[in-house]
Simulated assay, not measured.
Amino acid sequence: MTIQKAIPSDHEILTQITKKSKAYWGYSNEQIEIWAQFLTVSKEYIETNPVYNLVAEDQIVGYYSFFHESENTIKLDNLFVLPEFIGKGFGKVLMNDFLLRIQDQNVQKIVLNSESNAEIFYAKFGFIKVGQIETSIKDRYLPVMELRIN
């Protein structure tokens, strides 16, 4: 298992991973298509943001991406794993790599918008819920979480 910097030609597989991972939580194909613009990873996105792939068994099985929201705040924008790898420690590998990668960047805070079903995963790394944002589904909210770095 290795973690590699994504290249623009990875955009299609990363989009597939994102959609399949999101669908894992019980969302319909119709809902996934409604969200398609938010779940699509473009070549341009990979060219302008740090994106890292998790490769296992000679295939990309997950990835994460982030960007600087401000000088001292990083937003973890994506962290997705193919459904067959969920619950097997692959997300933890990605999160640990992300936290190591940003440790020398003078960051005071990491923020993210969590999938409701993944809130417990992020809490295990010390993230706390600080708010929520409404989604396109009635009465559905995404937890806004943050981790303060000392």
Score class of each variant (00 low, 15 high):
D10Q: 06
E12N: 09
L14F: 03
L14D: 02
T15N: 04
Q16K: 05
I17W: 02
T18G: 01
T18S: 11
S21D: 07
K22W: 03
K22V: 15
K22D: 00
A23C: 06
W25Q: 07
Q31P: 00
Q31S: 04
I32P: 00
I32D: 05
W35A: 09
A36R: 07
Q37T: 15
F38M: 14
F38Y: 13
L39M: 06
T40G: 01
V41H: 01
S42C: 06
E44W: 00
Y45T: 08
E47C: 09
T48C: 07
T48K: 07
N49F: 06
P50H: 01
P50Q: 04
P50E: 05
V51A: 07
Y52L: 04
V55M: 03
V55N: 02
E57G: 13
E57V: 10
E57N: 14
D58E: 15
I60R: 00
V61G: 09
V61H: 03
F66M: 07
F67L: 10
H68K: 10
H68D: 06
E69D: 14
S70R: 07
E71M: 11
I74M: 09
I74G: 05
I74P: 05
D77N: 07
N78L: 03
L79K: 04
L79Y: 05
F80M: 05
E84L: 12
I86R: 00
I86E: 02
K88E: 06
G89H: 03
G91H: 02
V93P: 03
M95W: 02
M95L: 13
M95S: 04
N96F: 03
L99S: 07
L99M: 10
L99P: 05
N106A: 14
V107I: 15
K109Q: 12
I110A: 05
V111F: 08
L112A: 06
L112D: 06
L112V: 08
E115A: 15
S116C: 12
S116N: 11
N117S: 13
A118F: 02
E119M: 12
I120E: 14
F121V: 09
Y122D: 12
G126R: 04
G126P: 11
F127C: 13
V130N: 10
G131M: 07
I133F: 05
S136Y: 01
S136K: 01
